[in-house]
């Protein structure tokens, strides 16, 4: 799959603050698009193989809360907290994933087990309200009183710094997606998605292949959670964990296109642009009107355009690099 498109986008975004200063607000939007684009890409690394997880809010929450708690409670730098949080996310992915794959929990059942997993994480966050602030959320202790850059605390006042961090992580995410796309793992998982027994009979270790891609996806998503927490300097159970976030992730990917490299990113750009333009157009006069339109569009997308925006566009242009394989 082509490398040119993501690199060109990355170069264009990187030059943005230099060539065309777009102001704080638009910069903020671009950063959010990159962070969410990365999270959505992380989901589709496994989602495209029919492993439809409704539990990615859990991984995001573990990343975001893990790092913030370690920083606030123990004063542990996010640089050290991140590996711990990522390891926790990976462990959680194994605890949920291994039995699922071992006992062949797929389809509806897999979606509902992962849904329970994300609720467990959200409820634990709420229940530990003495530590986490419960539903009110929490703020990482600021380290920006001394100056605009606190490298040790991974806090930066300047949005430009975050633009480059988010851009780097996003590009890494897209390249990981590409690497998986070109790996043997992809063929193993596509085979397993169509017929597990047949795949196993030709030597595919189905459980291991699924677990590998799940852990990868979980660690990436947790990274997105850490990035989001450090950038926003605020975490709440509803914004980084829970069902709403899990569904948001799945739907943005469907809207953008699950089976193409930049589909999830297009989904992030599309959903954020939609939300923000509606917000600007109608203000807060009618709260949740954006959600109304968003929900309606999702229904229409799934019924009439299941390939998503980019998937459909590429199919129309007729340059599908490889035949899209539908999940079983």
């Amino acid at each position: 799959m082509d490398l040119a498109a993501p690199l060109a986008i990355a170069a264009a975004v990187a030059l943005l603050p230099v060539l065309a200063p777009i102001g704080e607000y638009h910069l903020h939007l671009v950063i959010l698009m990159l962070i969410w684009g990365f999270v959505y890409t992380s989901w589709s690394v496994m989602g495209r193989f029919g492993l439809v997880s409704l539990g990615h809010g859990a991984f995001m929450g573990i990343g975001a809360y893990g790092v913030t708690l370690l920083w606030n409670q123990l004063g542990l730098s996010p640089w050290l907290g991140a590996p711990i949080a990522l390891a926790a996310a990976a462990l959680f992915a194994v605890v949920i994933g291994w039995p699922c794959f071992r006992f062949r929990i797929t389809g509806h059942y897999f979606a509902l087990v992962t849904l329970a997993a994300t609720e467990i994480v959200r409820l634990v966050i709420v229940a530990l309200r003495d530590l986490t602030g419960g539903s009110l959320g929490m703020t990482p202790k600021t380290a920006l009183t001394e100056g605009p850059v606190a490298l040790w605390a991974l806090q930066f006042a300047a949005k430009e710094v975050w633009l480059y961090i988010a851009l780097t992580v996003w590009l890494a995410g897209v390249l990981i997606w590409r690497a998986v796309d070109r790996s043997m793992l992809r063929y193993a998982l596509e085979a397993a998605g169509q017929d597990e027994d047949a795949a196993a009979s030709i030597g595919v270790d189905v459980t291991r292949a699924k677990l590998g891609v799940t852990v990868l996806s979980a660690v990436m998503t947790a990274t997105g959670g850490i990035l989001y927490a450090q950038y926003q300097l605020y975490v709440a159970p509803e914004t980084v964990a829970g069902i709403a976030i899990s569904l948001q992730i799945v739907f943005a990917v469907i809207a953008g296109g699950m089976f193409v490299q930049l589909g999830p990113t297009v989904g992030a750009v599309f959903t954020l642009a939609l939300t923000e333009s509606l917000r600007v157009a109608i203000g807060h006069a009618i709260p949740s009107l954006d959600g109304l339109i968003y929900g309606l569009m999702l229904v229409l997308f799934i019924i009439y355009m299941p390939k998503g925006i980019l998937g459909q566009a590429l199919a129309l242009v007729g340059r599908r690099p490889r035949p899209a394989v539908a999940p079983a």
């Binding site: 439809v52 799945v250 959600g291 968003y294 929900g295 309606l296 999702l298 229904v299 799934i302």
Partner: peptide, 10 residues
């Protein structure tokens, strides 16, 4: 399953 999730948001 997902289409009814869209209805949930709606």
């Amino acid at each position: 399953l997902l289409v009814t999730g869209g209805v949930l948001f709606f």
